[in-house]
């Protein structure tokens, strides 16, 4: 696959898969305001995914639509980081996953606004405004839950242990990143991510794990988790079951 196309798909799939995961919370949040805020974030991300997928379809030039790319690709053609496809777990795990992603996403989108590819810069500029709000909210919530009660602290510590090995992939460069010039290297975001994450974990009374081990395989599509296939089975059911229908 063309490196430029693959890079656009990586943006699209991160937003689509995380947006889908957050949408699973709709109607069952811990408090009405959180339910509404999660749906808002999901709406932003799915909106961003649509913009990226429309561009990906154009770059691909094979006559496919954004919906074709969302609903008719199988697991190995998805290019999202593993982190965003992980199951929601409890509310704390969902928000901590969101925070780790947001802490990457905001500086990343800000960097993309300087892309020589005008379309990339344009989508990034629109998305960055939303990502700033997402980060503010997820950081505040992680702090509240880490600091809150003994139970909430223990739950956040468990979520941290589970999610940590999946954070590194967001910032590991690979051949695709190196083979294009529309986007900066993901590793360039590491200092900003570390600064945000260290500050928030400290305020949340959580200890940053020592390990820098990172599961990889999502951004390349080479080895997703088992969770993604189940998500796609649900998400893609109608277009797959009724391939000639339009909705």
């Amino acid at each position: 696959m063309d490196a430029a196309l693959e890079c656009v798909l990586r943006q699209a799939d991160n937003a689509l898969v995380l947006g889908h995961r957050l949408s699973e919370w709709c109607g069952v949040g811990p408090v009405l305001e959180e339910d509404i805020a999660l749906a808002n974030t999901a709406l932003d991300l799915i909106g961003q995914a649509k913009l990226w997928l429309e561009y990906a379809a154009e770059v691909q030039g094979a006559g496919r639509t954004a919906d074709d790319l969302a609903f008719r690709r199988d697991v190995y053609d998805f290019k999202n980081a593993l982190l965003v496809e992980l199951p929601n777990g409890d509310f704390g795990q969902t928000l901590l996953r969101e925070f780790f992603f947001d802490a990457f996403h905001l500086p990343w989108l800000q960097a993309l606004t300087a892309s020589p590819d005008a379309r990339v810069a344009e989508v990034a500029a629109k998305s960055a405004k939303e990502a700033a709000y997402h980060l503010e909210r997820s950081a505040e919530t992680v702090i509240a839950l880490g600091d809150g009660t003994d139970e909430s602290h223990a739950r956040m510590a468990a979520a941290l242990a589970y999610l940590w090995p999946y954070t590194g992939e967001l910032m590991v460069d690979d051949a695709v990143d190196l083979g294009q010039d529309a986007m900066p290297l993901p590793s360039s975001i590491r200092p900003a991510w570390d600064t945000t994450v260290n500050a928030v974990l400290a305020e949340a009374m959580l200890t940053r794990p020592d390990s820098d081990f990172a599961h990889t395989g999502g951004r390349s599509g080479v080895r997703h988790t088992e969770h993604l296939g189940h998500m796609l089975a649900q998400m893609q059911f109608l277009p797959r079951a009724y391939p000639t229908a339009t909705w």
Binding site: L32, A39, L53, A70
Partner: peptide
């Protein structure tokens, strides 16, 4: 049906609608 909406646009519309209902509740 939010997780099974058949297009991106339908997904956004449905999610926004259900979110509106939470807002009405509020």
């Amino acid at each position: 049906w939010i997780t099974r909406a058949p297009s991106l646009e339908r997904k956004v519309n449905l999610l926004a609608k259900v979110q509106d209902e939470a807002g009405h509740g509020l």
